[in-house]
């Protein structure tokens, strides 16, 4: 079977886009007619998640934790409050937990039952995170999935998979790359990728942005 990067595989032949488009249009127009929705509210919501929220928020949290040991301590103790200090919180980040990667442990996050993801710090999830292959495989064969993402870990390191099945939302605090002493938070932020905060990546090496 040829796999293409859609949600699961190419389904367009089974459900023509025009049909689903019509269904959504019909739903919206009926709800609008019944005065149950405010289309301007929909536009505002879409704008927020499409343009204003994203992994830069999470990168800011990570860079601050790398720079400020007291902030890091607060973040690991009460992530929701520490993240709120930077102005982030709300829908799908109401109750946060930050898990720290160390020399001994590598953390990686999934939601096997649906696609739960920390929106205020990472924005909306990438398609692969919501896909059946990731949700099925990362729990049973985390090391081979991580290798496909370019993350190869020593066998001695513990891989700890977090299934976010309840209403806690998880953010991985990646290990700080070497040779970044004295860097500003703004510089450090550039090393923090979205995947590093899910656990399917590591922070970029210092050389990548020098």
């Amino acid at each position: 079977m040829k796999h293409t990067p859609t949600d699961y595989h190419d389904h367009e032949h089974t459900e023509p886009p025009s049909d689903i488009e019509l269904r959504v249009k019909a739903l919206e127009s009926i709800l609008q007619e019944k005065q149950l929705i405010d289309p301007a509210a929909l536009d505002a919501l879409i704008d927020i998640y499409e343009h204003k929220v994203g992994p830069r928020n999470g990168a800011q949290v990570v860079a601050k934790a790398w720079s400020d040991p007291q902030y890091k301590q607060r973040l690991l103790q009460d992530a929701t409050a520490a993240i709120a200090e930077l102005g982030f919180g709300g829908v799908q980040g109401e109750d946060m937990l930050v898990v720290e990667n160390t020399a001994a442990v590598h953390n990686v996050v999934v939601c096997t039952l649906c696609s739960c993801y920390p929106w205020p710090t990472l924005g909306l999830p990438p398609i692969w995170y919501k896909s059946a292959p990731y949700r099925s495989r990362i729990v049973i064969e985390p090391r081979s999935v991580l290798a496909e993402f370019g993350v190869t870990l020593a066998p001695s390191k513990e891989v700890r998979v977090w299934d976010s099945n309840a209403e806690l939302r998880y953010l991985v605090l990646p290990e700080r790359p070497v040779d970044t002493e004295g860097w500003s938070e703004a510089q450090l932020m550039k090393l923090v990728t979205r995947n590093a905060m899910i656990g399917t990546g590591l922070a970029l090496p210092a050389g990548d942005i020098r």
Binding site: H3, P5, I127, S131, A132, R135, S136, V145, E148
Partner: peptide, 16 residues
């Protein structure tokens, strides 16, 4: 079917 954890055969994880 939503309870996917541990299933085999669903293909590779594709990043775009």
């Amino acid at each position: 079917i939503h309870d996917l954890g541990g299933m085999h055969g669903l293909g590779p994880v594709l990043q775009d």
